[in-house]
């Protein structure tokens, strides 16, 4: 039996953890942990407040703009590096440094550059998401069968057709994998950015809740964020599965 595509055992284990949370909360051991039922109630209330709604709009907008930028810049950059040796040698080092560096440390620098506002959040999303997109796109382009490229050339493909009709499509499974990982990193970027800036979107809410020890709302917001990140990754995975299907014969 499945619920929403998940098999029951997973739901069951989740339920066990919720019950455990509830019990720990009821025991009143820590002020940090209110009962789970209270957190749920807080979540229901929270989503109805205008402050949550506007924070969500701000957050989503910053996330969307940052992701769009990192895809629009990252995919062509990855293709360039996959196709042109010089570009790869010039940029490869930086991309691999940034893709594994602790980027949170750079967010304060972004604040200096872009000020305490949405721009910094967008920059943080971009900074967190782009490198894995570049790396995966590059790997995808590298793995294209040389005979596919030769085929295009032998039938007189223009440069543009070669990229638009062959390279982009042949590398699509890897590009999508990169975007999925980039989205997850982008969520990190938007959260860390907002927490550090602390006057925009969810960051401002987190700041208010934690400063006033409104833990139920604090946890409710955390759960909403987690659910959001999971949802995005799930959606992209579905899309990937479809593309994988077409690319199956590679």
């Amino acid at each position: 039996m499945t619920i929403f595509g998940y098999r029951i055992p997973m739901m069951a284990s989740l339920l066990v953890w919720c019950v455990a949370w509830e019990i720990v909360g009821r025991l009143d051991l820590m002020i940090m942990v209110p009962p789970f039922s209270e957190v749920l109630r807080a979540a229901v209330d929270l989503v109805q407040t205008p402050s949550w709604q506007s924070a969500t709009v701000t957050t989503l907008r910053a996330f969307a703009i940052g992701m769009a930028l990192s895809i629009v810049v990252g995919v062509p950059l990855g293709i360039l590096m996959g196709r042109i040796k010089l570009a790869d040698e010039l940029l490869g080092m930086w991309v691999s440094i940034f893709s594994s560096a602790p980027l949170s440390a750079l967010v304060p620098v972004l604040m200096i550059l872009f000020g305490f506002g949405e721009k910094t959040i967008i920059a943080a999303v971009f900074l967190f998401a782009i490198w894995i997109i570049v790396l995966d796109t590059r790997a995808g382009v590298r793995h294209i069968s040389p005979s596919l490229i030769e085929m295009a050339k032998s039938y007189g493909a223009t440069k543009r057709a070669l990229y638009v009709k062959i390279i982009l499509w042949a590398a699509l499974p890897e590009i999508l994998a990169g975007i999925r990982l980039g989205l997850i990193r982008g969520v990190k970027g938007v959260v860390i950015g907002q927490l550090l800036v602390a006057i925009v979107g969810y960051g401002a809410l987190f700041e208010t809740f934690s400063r006033n020890f409104r833990m139920a709302e604090f946890w409710a917001l955390t759960i909403i964020l987690f659910a959001f990140a999971l949802l995005i990754s799930e959606l992209i995975e579905r899309l990937e599965a479809k593309v994988e299907f077409y690319a199956g014969a590679r």
């Binding site: 596919l148 042949a170 014969a249």
Partner: peptide, 11 residues
Amino acid sequence: FVFQDFALLPW
């Protein structure tokens, strides 16, 4: 040209 590995577009 006809290719040894077919060189078809899988998509």
